[in-house]
Write a protein that binds this DNA or RNA. Structure first.
Lengths: 215, 215
DNA sequence: ATAACGCTCAAACACTTGTGCTGTCAAGTA
DNA sequence: TACTTGACAGCACAAGTGTTTGAGCGTTAT
């Protein structure tokens, strides 16, 4: 099985393991660490997949050097942070930028603490900076950074980025669906919900985190 | 020769070298790296001084593990995350816990991304988990983690944790002072401010960040 | 069918690297 | 002087680790 990145599941597990190992220990894993914890039968399998990961540019390696595996995007950065791309700004009245159209590699990165979400859950997550006070009823302030996972459906109670077709505007609200009717409930209970038809709503992503710095 | 830290010049060089090595390569140096580049005659000399550094708490070591030397967070220059202690819970009506009374070493830790705040600014910062909706007018939700810097005064416009003596309750608001009168302004502009006498207010800390996870 | 290819095994091999002696030497101390 | 202590040397060993080799096996292409 292959993911969108062209990585096998085993390779993804290895990549993930390397990251978490470093977050936990502060130094990189040895091949045998990977082998043992991932219950791989042979070191050569690890070496084989490591080489594949290297060819795909997912890791850096120093030949012959013990524990010389490093992750490109975390070089000089460590201790529990995972980086997600900061794709732009979210403002009232504008649809979210399409992640497909942005060069993710070149985008600015935002550190996300691992205790906010484990690395595998951050797979399809990106960040947006909030401009304006339009999201204030979702308890999100001007200048906050919101973490969004791209998805086009949602469960009741999820906080989502919803595009209202009739107004052509995006809003962050809690999502509830019932018989073709949709209720978009502000996180702030003193504010009023929006009721509309399901056809009028396009879900653009799910809000998975908020970072606010007042320094 | 000894520095103020009680380190010999050689130990300082080693410490410095470890830091630079990691910044340059992304992984930690082996004893022989230190030996060679610092032109030390024997690996045992390095081991000897490494042990001294460890005893003085300047480095962490993982015995037997290759390249298992790591620097404690306080020394890391460019870590992606900095750890601050999570000292407890903040609830409406209760003063903040006194950081002096809590075992900071034993406390749970929260990762804070460095792009939220640089390491030196996180010096006297601790974290609290918010329970209840009492801080909702500060755009802080139930379950959020707030980062506070301990301080007993504030500038106009700072978001502070303020203890109202007459009500014996803590609230998070923007602080404005004018002629002995204090205005505590909710971050949510639709809510009403509190006006009170300066004598009635004790500042317990300044809010420097908010983390919210919706995973 | 046959070949080619991606992936996996198992084991052996060789280099890398931490550690453990055994001394040396200078400076203090009684 | 004799005894300690801190710091350094040199060397060898053993454990830690990356690499290589040869083979097995299922899937896909010729």
């Amino acid at each position: 099985m292959r993911s969108a990145d062209g990585l096998s599941t085993r390779q993804e597990k290895i990549l993930n393991y390397i990251q978490e190992f470093f977050a936990k220990h502060g130094y990189w894993p040895a091949i045998r660490d990977i082998q043992t914890d991932l219950k791989i039968s042979s070191t050569s399998v690890v070496a084989y997949n490591l080489k594949a990961l290297q060819d795909k540019g997912k890791i850096n390696r120093q030949g012959k050097v013990s524990r010389g595996i490093t992750l490109p995007n975390t070089l000089g950065v460590h201790n529990g942070a995972h980086q997600v791309p900061l794709l732009g700004t979210i403002t009232a009245g504008q649809p979210l930028p399409d992640p497909e159209e942005v060069d993710i590699e070149a985008a600015e990165k935002v550190d996300v603490p691992l205790d906010l979400a484990s690395a595998d859950k951050l797979k399809d997550v990106y960040a947006l900076r909030v401009r304006g006070l339009s999201m204030i009823d979702a308890l999100i302030d001007d200048g906050d950074i919101v973490l969004l996972r791209r998805q086009d459906s949602a469960n009741n109670g999820d906080m989502v980025a919803a595009l209202l077709l009739d107004e052509n505007s995006v809003t962050l609200k809690k999502f509830y669906q019932d018989n073709g009717r949709v209720r978009l409930q502000p996180a702030n209970s003193t504010m009023q919900p929006i009721f509309t038809a399901a056809e009028n709503v396009r879900i653009q992503g799910r809000v998975v985190g908020v970072l606010r710095s007042l320094f």
